[in-house]
Amino acid sequence: MQLVMPDTGLLIWMMITFLIVLILLKKFAWKPILTMIKEREDSIDSALKSAERAKEEMRSLQSDNEKILAQARHERDQMMKEARDMKDNIVGEAKGKAKEEADKILASAREAIQNEKMAAITELKNQVALLSVDIAEKILKRELSDENKQRDLIGDLLKDTKLN
C-alpha cells in the first residue's frame, strides 16, 4: 500500500524542482535550441530555394543562349543568302552589260563591214562600168569600121526599142 501512496514531502520537492528546471531549461536551453534549429531550417530552406532559382535562371539563360545562337545562325544564313543574291545580281548585270556591249560592238562592226562592202561594191560597179564602157568602145570601134555592120546594129537597136 505504501508503494501506491503519494508522499507529500517528495511531491513538494518534485514540484518545486521540476518547475524550476522547466523554467530554466525553457529560458536557457529550449528557447535558443529551438530558435537555432528553426533558423537553420529556414536558412537551409531558403538556400535550397535560391539554388532552385539559380538552376531555373541557368536553364532560362541556356535557352536564351540557344535562342541567340539560333538567331545568329539564321542571320548568318540570311546574310549569306543576300550576299549570294547580290553576287548573282552583280554577275548577271555584268554579263548583261557585257553582252550588250559586245552586241553593240558586233552591230557596229557589221555596219562598218556593210558600209565597206557597199563602198567596195560601188567601187567595183564603177570599175566594171568603166571597163565595160572601155571594152564596149573598143568593140564598137572595131565593129563600126564596116558600113553594113553599122546598119545591122542600128536595126537591132531599133527593134528592141519600143516606143511608149
Binding site: 508522499d7 507529500t8 514531502g9 517528495l10 513538494i12 520537492w13 518534485m14 524542482t17 528546471v21 530554466l24 531549461l25 536551453a29 529550449w30 535550441i33
Partner: peptide
C-alpha cells in the same frame, strides 16, 4: 516529512544531468 530522501537525491542528479547536457 520533507526530507532529502533517496528519490529527492535522484531528482537532483537527474536535474543536474539535464542542466549539464542541455
Amino acid at each position: 516529512d520533507v526530507s532529502i530522501t533517496k528519490n529527492v537525491v535522484t531528482l537532483f542528479i537527474v536535474v543536474g544531468l539535464m542542466f549539464l547536457i542541455f
